[in-house]
Design a protein around this nucleic acid. Sequence first.
DNA 1: ACATCTAGACGACGGCTGTCGTTTTATAGA
DNA 2: TCTATAAAACGACAGCCGTCGTCTAGATGT
Lengths: 206, 206
Amino acid sequence: MPISDCEVRDPRIRRTRQLLQGALQELMRTKSFDEVSVQDITDTATVNRATFYDHYNDKFALLDAMVAGGFHKLLSERAVRYDGSCPSAASAVILATSDYLLQMASHEGVCQKQSAFQPLVDGAIVRAIGRVLAEGIPGNEDETGLGGGMIVAAASWAIYGAVKEWFDAQGRCPVNEMVERVTKLMVPVLSAGGAPEEMHALQSAP
Amino acid sequence: MPISDCEVRDPRIRRTRQLLQGALQELMRTKSFDEVSVQDITDTATVNRATFYDHYNDKFALLDAMVAGGFHKLLSERAVRYDGSCPSAASAVILATSDYLLQMASHEGVCQKQSAFQPLVDGAIVRAIGRVLAEGIPGNEDETGLGGGMIVAAASWAIYGAVKEWFDAQGRCPVNEMVERVTKLMVPVLSAGGAPEEMHALQSAP
DNA sequence: ACATCTAGACGACGGCTGTCGTTTTATAGA
DNA sequence: TCTATAAAACGACAGCCGTCGTCTAGATGT
């Protein structure tokens, strides 16, 4: 019976969900996700276990909401928006992604241990990235006939995959360099929808 | 205590794992993944429940192995290999990905209902695509200094994301057209490592 | 201030999970 | 062929899951 998570009016609901998300974050500082039980979460949140299921289908749904919310928060704090195919905007999204991964691994501790449910986190972040990109790339098939949906999908998955690859193989190169590489890789993809002129110029620059 | 899944000598182990994977496939023809219990699987496979845990950590690990194995089988049946940055090779991988999704949805029924654990399937397929691409793109950082790992990661995630986008929004365009679009999108990414000449020619072709 | 609505508390339920130790069975190698 | 190895069967266990129905309390809106 969980209600849609974005834009909840009732302050009680917000409070309870805040408590649950906080409890999960707290617990994941020491345990890995699959070692945390719903019982643990509700005990820490001082909330009845049955109440949990009034808000989320299972602990995976809670994780999903937490990740999506956290990433969205990080984006809005920096006022990161992807408007059009501007490469610097793409870089901002890429940087935000890597920062979020770092933040999760360290002080938030969302994925302290490499859990078997990492793919769930992956999916949540990819969706979040997709949402940002979609704001800048109209989904309607315009004169180009390419369909922005596919570009957004390809780009958001690619960005996350590349950043995660860099992240998992730590110490390969500094963040700046990684962002630059991924941006260069993404520019031709993102510019496939429109405004290709400036892109090609930038792409062929040293 | 599960033993590594690839290259198992003992025929008994192969037999049992075959039975378990077959049982899960069978059950997912009617139920969604999260509606299937380990009990169901072992009952259908006529195998003791405890035996299941000798082979897989949980039912998610079984799904993962099943998807990876199935995709690898589909690729080797067609002798699909990605050697170098040849666009037709990329197209073959893309087509194989969409075919695998179709095959899963219809007659194999791996993801009949849209389950909350779809991300796990996603991750398994992305990893499988990555393995194929990695054969054609050397991971060592050569004179280009780009590092093939990032390209492989970006490309495999992007390919799967794009194909899945097309797949989820069914009826948008025929398969051929989708493959062509995604290939065009991926060529600049894949060719970032080396052999960029032919690529650029193809990219600017009508 | 009041009546109403509804989130949340609570206890209980059957079912599934993951693990353990022991026993049986069949493969692999000498 | 015979023996050592190891996979699988089996039963049992505590613990967690997801759900249900009922009841309380507090927020909402008039």
